[in-house]
């Protein structure tokens, strides 16, 4: 099955789902129809809102990935056989200041 026919099939399933939902709502007693439709609308609204939030988060993350390499970060790679990285950097700073 190629990709397009798969998408078409999934779209069909979605349409069928919507039709079913409509039928289900309409089959309910009049008093509950409004609740059902409202529930469905709210569900779709929440879905859209979630999608918007996810989209915004994706955009922010993409921006972060673009900006991160441009930010100047001075972090030295330190090899040491004993003292901690902080101690080594502090001692080197202290000694370089005496030069």
């Amino acid at each position: 099955m190629n990709k397009n026919s798969k998408i078409e099939q999934e779209t069909d399933v979605l349409e069928q789902y919507r039709a079913l939902w409509k039928t289900y709502c309409e089959s309910l007693p009049q008093a509950r129809v409004v609740d059902c439709i409202e529930f469905h609308r709210r569900y779709e609204r929440e879905q859209r809102s979630t999608q918007r939030r996810l989209m915004a988060a994706c955009l922010m993350m993409a921006a972060l990935i673009v900006v991160l390499p441009l930010v100047p970060i001075h972090r030295s790679t330190v090899f040491t056989n004993g003292p901690s990285r902080g101690e080594v950097l502090a001692l080197s700073d202290q000694l370089i200041a005496l030069l």
């Binding site: 090899f79 040491t80 056989n81 003292p83 080197s92």
Partner: peptide, 27 residues
């Protein structure tokens, strides 16, 4: 020198000197 007893050896890949240039340093 890293395995020599009595010596604390360190290597800093990019040590910034005077905020202008980075130089590898062995301490």
């Amino acid at each position: 020198y890293k395995d020599m007893p009595g010596i604390q050896a360190s290597f800093i890949k990019d040590k910034y000197i005077n905020d202008s240039i980075s130089i590898p340093v062995t301490l």
